[in-house]
Simulated assay, not measured.
Amino acid sequence: MRYRSMAVLAAVAVTALAGCGAEPEPALRLAAAESDGLGLEQVRVGLAFDQGGRGDKSFNDAAAAGLDRAKKELEVDGVEVTLSEETDEERVTRLRELAEAGRNPVIAVGFLYAKAVQTVAAEFPETTFAIVDDDSFSAPNVVSLVFAEEQGSYLVGATAALKSRSGRIGFIGGVRMPLLQKFEAGFTAGARKARPGVRVSVDYLSTPPDFSGFGVPDKAKEIAERMLADGVDVVYTAAGASGAGSLQAVAARKGTWAVGVDSDQYQTAEAGVRDSILSSMIKRVDNAVFQEIQAFIKGDRAGGVKRFDLKTDGVGYSVSNTKAVSAVQRKVDSIRQQILDGAVTVPTKP
């Protein structure tokens, strides 16, 4: 890799000078230590998971995939932390521990880390922090990684509407808040674009300050069952680990479909559930995490906002269940192109 080659050359230069009995010049020591962003020291990344941690088959697993890729391709050293309790104090503690251990960059997965990142980043100004799904504040050493979830949701909304036999589809959100309402807005608009007159049922698992909606699969299952009993035959759930309950409800009712979120859940679901997954709204948190680590290695340590959308392959929809999607894929891809061409502007509010 280029950065390793640069580091080796810098090391050779330093060794040659040392062999002549001379102390390397500061500029050469700096080159050896920071060549192309990585230099002779391995980058040590810290990743703090959102509710549920690795294994949620959704949001956290996407972030974990980005770190795994960086460990393999960029040869970084990466550690992960999972919350023992869902409090701001716990989040602060975990981020502070990573920073104190010399982890840099430190990546927080989820908007619930906003207060914690703001606090700890101020304490460690030489450490680069990144937060996924939040741009509510700015700091010189904080990078916000945000997504056009409404665009990906628009595509699965169109897919759901075109595939529905009853003309009734449903959306279940984790928490009724602006971030999740972007999913709802895109899903509903995409459905109505593809099939005017389609009916969309909407429900949420919790409302702030209650953020438990990302970890209550039983409640998601109950709501999905109610929707299905009312005639809904495609259910899109954007609720992290709670989505497992919704998937179970759909799998138990013949002739209905589930739409996954964040990761391609058709690829990770259990055999009894997989065939009921029509598509998933892909949110490339893996790409965002990997690219942020890559940017850090290349020397990009400045704060700011990085947005991932259809044009940057930051969001999309999955077609892994080819048998289910093939009949509608051409029309959905046509709608996707309209977004890319600017002919369609996807709403971000219901």
Rank of each mutant, 00 (worst) to 15 (best):
P208M: 10
A18M: 14
D333H: 03
V232G: 09
R2H: 08
F171C: 04
G303P: 06
K283C: 03
Q51S: 13
K221H: 09
Q338V: 13
M6A: 15
Q291H: 05
K349M: 15
V198A: 11
G173Q: 05
S5M: 11
V198H: 11
I277T: 00
N104C: 08
Q151E: 13
G39W: 02
A16P: 02
Q267D: 09
S212C: 03
F111S: 08
I277S: 06
R199T: 12
S5P: 06
L205T: 05
P347V: 11
A139Q: 13
D230I: 01
G186K: 14
L38Y: 07
R307K: 15
V132G: 05
N141D: 01
D61Q: 08
S334P: 09
D230Y: 10
S318H: 02
F183T: 03
D77G: 03
T119A: 02
T348N: 11
R330H: 04
R253K: 15
K323V: 02
A343K: 15
V14K: 13
R94M: 14
I293E: 07
F183Q: 03
S320D: 06
R2I: 02
G53A: 11
E222A: 12
R274S: 02
A161H: 07
D275G: 00
A121M: 10
S279G: 08
R301M: 00
S201L: 14
L205Y: 10
Y3K: 14
A295C: 07
E184R: 09
C20P: 07
T82S: 12
A62V: 00
G260N: 05
S58I: 08
R4V: 12
F129E: 03
Q42C: 12
G19A: 14
D300I: 10
K323G: 01
A70L: 08
